[in-house]
Amino acid sequence: MFLIFFILISQEPEKKLEDIRKKLIEQRKNVQELKLRELGILQSIQEIDNEITLTRKLVDELKKQTEILQQEIKDIENMIVELDYNLKQKKVILAKRVRNIYKYGKLHPLAVVLLSYSFDDALKRMKYLSIIAEQDLRILNEIKRIKALLDNKRETLIKKLEDLDQLKVEAEIEQDNLQKTLLGKKNFLQEVSSKREEAEKMARELEKAEQDLKKLIASLPKQEKGKVDLFKTKLLFPVEGKIVGKFGFKRDPKYGTITKNNGIDISAEFGEPVKAIADGKVVFADNFLGYGKLVIIDHGDGFISLYAHLSTISVETGNDVSQGTIIGLVGDTGSLNEPQLHFEIRRDGQPVDPMHYF
């Protein structure tokens, strides 16, 4: 039973790795098919982001598997050293016995009887002779067992070293693919912003995404009584960073297109922890077109907080969270910019300036 459990546990990381590989192959196929069809800009960004996310997952999993394999190799190498030492010790004992037999000769059972002082003495000597013979046989069998185990471990070590080389090569290839995909997204966004027609299309899509978000929020379950009073509670700023986008309307200096920012944008390092500003319940934690990986927390009394463009989500819908709980990490999913957190506070469904609450 333990052996079966061990085998299942050892197979789990390999299965996880294979699942990610399959999903990534499928997603890359989707991205290639997108190029043959006319899709919205936000939809294209979302598909590219999905590929980036899966590639990052694969790279991270390959690194984990590499570390696990390196530890396994180290353990096998230590075991080989120990087995080799035990084998040498057993060989020393056996060599000593062989020298004694060569020096004094092998004692025949009949000689034992004839040289005995009495019948009881003969029985004792025969018993000792049997014990010595059994001991010699045990030593010989132990040498054979250790040698076979040693050969097996050396074969396993060679296989593990080959697997390690393959993982390192795959990790390097996928890291290169990740950089190419990131560059591809950057070039795609630059192309969109450089053409007036595309920029205007983007503005229309962002407006629709905002309307879709408004509908989503209206459909979410509400907490009537809040755990905290946002007017009286000192809220925690969601992430360490610099505010690069303020609440309200803004005009594109190049094309004059006007868009509304329903929250604030905070520039931060990729992977920086994003924290809940106050106690509440997670009512949404998933991808949302135009907002990437999105988490919405209901604080009760009509107040919700919204955290968008995350690289990973650390909570699930229905989770109760406390102020300071890490709900995800800073990213750029669904974003037109470098890694940043888009953060909103809404009261009764209407966006309010978050800076009034900090």
Rank of each mutant, 00 (worst) to 15 (best):
K57S: 11
L129Q: 06
A218M: 14
A308Q: 01
K103T: 13
E67M: 11
S219N: 13
K186F: 13
M202D: 00
V330A: 05
D301N: 15
D298L: 07
F249N: 10
G328W: 04
L310H: 02
I173M: 09
K185P: 07
I68G: 03
R204I: 04
L220W: 14
E197Y: 07
T317K: 07
P351T: 09
T333I: 09
L216R: 05
L149T: 09
L157T: 04
L54C: 10
E269R: 14
G292Y: 00
R145N: 12
I76M: 08
P13R: 04
T257P: 01
F119V: 15
E198M: 15
D353Y: 06
A171Y: 00
V244D: 07
K227Y: 07
K103Y: 13
R154S: 04
L306D: 03
A308L: 08
R251C: 05
V228Y: 03
S194N: 10
V113T: 03
Q211V: 14
Q70N: 10
L150K: 02
I146E: 00
K35E: 06
Q211Y: 13
V92M: 15
A111V: 14
D348I: 10
E134M: 14
K153W: 11
L157S: 05
E38I: 10
Q166L: 14
E26Y: 11
K147L: 10
I45G: 05
A285L: 04
K232H: 10
P221Y: 12
K254P: 08
V282S: 03
A171D: 02
N177K: 09
K222C: 03
T312M: 12
F5M: 12
V315Y: 02
D212S: 08
R138L: 15
K232P: 03
Q190F: 12
G263A: 11
K227L: 13
L294Q: 00
D121A: 09
R204K: 11
F249T: 09
I243P: 01
L236I: 15
H342V: 00
